[in-house]
């Protein structure tokens, strides 16, 4: 059996169990898990390509397959609703708040982890606690602030409030990452007369690129998925983000257009799913790093 070094520890003794036993204890439960975890996505996907006749007729058509796939739902979504606008809004808000948060988090993580100023430990703890403050507690006071500053129904309301949960998270992740970079490199640069800023930009950041990527992906996903702030601070359809737009605008009255609803959910999930598929190994690795320390 070919082995590599990141192979899971339990593997070493897998040869002790017979093949049929492995089927019962590993493969079958795993397949069940996969079925349950993935079924809603399958259902989402298959519903988006069904025509209305097929959607509500379980007698003549099997619900698990599409007999006559149609693009009508997606066409309706893209050309007869504000969906493309919501996609753009979500993208804009997510990118800007991610960049803003990454900048703040890099500076903060560097200060806490490397400058080790007086009280750095306390600030590090405070940042961790800040991550534990849930949006469900903050949205009411934030709503009154957003009203007071005239930011209601603008993208700024979201761009400025998303960093409240992005910065603590990214800082926490980057602190762990910075800790893994040898301090000697910085000392050398310092001896050579580099300033703190130069050290950060020219030494630390290039080495921390993997950490920056995972923090960036996390932040992007978190802002893409955000719901309660967007629901509370945005009113007009053309400012909405995808999750809020799909929930509030595509559901009108008693008639649910399940086909286009599912298409909306599918298209809104794709960007983050694709983004993750490229970096998933990275994700598991950074998670391992974060829990190891």
């Amino acid at each position: 059996m070919a082995r590599n070094k990141d192979e899971a520890p339990a593997d070493g003794m897998d040869y002790l169990t017979s093949i049929p036993r492995r089927w019962v204890t590993v493969y079958i439960p795993l397949l069940l898990f996969l079925f349950v975890l993935l079924f809603p996505f399958y259902w989402m996907g298959i519903t988006s390509f069904k025509s209305n006749e097929e959607l509500y007729d379980f007698q003549n058509f099997s619900p698990f397959w599409v007999a006559h796939p149609t693009l009508a739902n997606i066409e309706k979504l893209l050309f007869r609703t504000a969906y493309p606008e919501w996609l753009l809004n979500t993208l804009l808000v997510s990118v800007v708040s991610t960049v803003l948060s990454l900048f703040c988090a890099v500076c903060a993580a560097y200060a806490i982890e490397r400058l080790r100023f007086k009280g750095a430990r306390f600030v590090g703890l405070a940042i961790f606690l800040a991550y534990l403050v849930p949006p469900s507690i903050l949205f009411i006071p934030l709503a009154s602030m957003v009203f007071a500053y005239g930011l209601f129904d603008t993208k700024w309301a979201l761009i400025l409030t998303y960093p409240t949960f992005l910065i603590p998270f990214c800082t926490w992740l980057l602190m762990g990452y910075f800790r893994s970079i040898p301090y000697e490199l910085e000392e050398c640069a310092l001896m050579d007369g580099a300033s703190r800023l130069q050290i950060l930009v020219k030494i630390l950041l290039p080495l921390a690129v993997p950490g920056l990527i995972s923090a960036g992906i996390f932040a992007f996903t978190l802002s893409w998925n955000e719901f309660i702030y967007a629901l509370t601070f945005i009113q007009s359809s053309e400012q909405k983000t995808v999750p809020v737009g799909v929930i509030t605008e595509l559901v009108e009255g008693d008639v649910y257009h399940w086909g286009s609803l599912m298409a909306g959910a599918l298209l809104g999930s794709l960007p983050v799913a694709i983004l993750y598929s490229f970096f998933v190994e990275h994700y598991v690795a950074s998670m391992t790093g974060a829990v190891k320390e």
Partner: peptide, 20 residues
């Protein structure tokens, strides 16, 4: 496998809730 197992967690909850 790890990648697809993560799917329910990474897609927007509001959207997967619609599927439910």
């Amino acid at each position: 496998l790890r990648a697809i197992v993560l799917l329910p967690w990474i897609v927007p909850t509001a959207l997967s809730a619609i599927a439910f």
